[in-house]
């Protein structure tokens, strides 16, 4: 009999599985990609002309792309909740547990696959953004920082999405829950400046986790001063990730008790 494999082997095998399945669920993948792209086109061509974003931006497309990138991460990670929920509902989780595969590798497999999916779709959205006139001016360091912030958010949102998948009793409910997450970029500076919103919303819009990420991405991509926005964004991502990992650990134990 072979030696008991470690957590890393389990996580690697589970990641391979999730990636294979994602590749075959092309419709989900295309939806996750098309929605942000369509939203970007709608905002740029339908609403953009009417949105006043200040003199710092040559055109609305320069303003809106960072928000669309994060929106894309939100949509993309939402599929993780559904996938986790489906595993918990069916016999898969019993089989995995009877093979002595723990909760962490199962979720990690989903999260890593989600991250890979999101990196692909983010790249595509970025490509379309370039086609419609987005002209970034970031330095090499800036690009690395952009990649870092995006990666941190994708991982954090994917893991929180996995936790939602454990929380929801059905895959349909899991899909519904993540809608709220995809909604977060709207009350932020993603599409319109926070100043243009009613006063009572400023407190929320300025201090919710998406805003510092958008400020950081926008500043870095357009080579504008960013202050400590990237650090605040990374702190938010780390905080979300920590909560998501802790929460999913507890939820996994409850669901499999």
């Amino acid at each position: 009999m072979s030696d008991a494999p470690g957590v890393l082997t389990h996580a690697a095998v589970m990641t391979g599985r999730s990636l294979r399945i994602s590749r075959r669920n092309l419709d989900a993948m295309i939806t996750a990609m098309m929605l942000p792209i369509m939203l970007m086109l709608i905002f740029v061509y339908f609403f953009g002309g009417a949105i006043e974003t200040g003199t710092a931006y040559d055109s609305y497309v320069m303003y809106v792309v960072p928000g669309v990138l994060l929106l894309c991460a939100g949509f993309g990670s939402a599929t993780t909740a559904v996938a986790v929920s489906e595993d918990m509902k069916g016999g898969i989780i019993d089989r995995l547990r009877s093979l002595d595969v723990g909760g962490a590798p199962v979720l990690a497999g989903h999260v890593v696959a989600s991250t890979v999916r999101n990196l692909v779709s983010t790249t595509l959205v970025f490509g379309v953004a370039l086609l419609i006139g987005f002209r970034p001016a970031a330095s090499l360091g800036g690009w690395l920082a952009v990649a870092g912030v995006l990666l941190a958010y994708i991982v954090a949102l994917s893991w929180i999405s996995a936790a939602i998948g454990l929380l929801a009793r059905t895959p349909e409910a899991a899909g519904g829950f993540t809608f709220f997450m995809s909604f977060l970029p709207y009350p932020s500076s993603a599409f319109v400046p926070v100043d243009s919103m009613p006063g009572w919303l400023h407190g929320f819009a300025d201090h919710q986790p998406i805003t510092p990420a958008i400020e950081a991405l926008r500043g870095l991509l357009l080579a504008q001063p960013v202050g400590n926005a990237p650090w605040i964004a990374l702190a938010w991502a780390a905080g979300i990730l920590a909560v998501a990992i802790g929460l999913s650990g507890v939820l996994f134990r409850i669901r499999t008790a």
Partner: peptide, 9 residues
Amino acid sequence: MTARLTGLS
């Protein structure tokens, strides 16, 4: 996949 999870190469 299942075989890999049980520790087979």
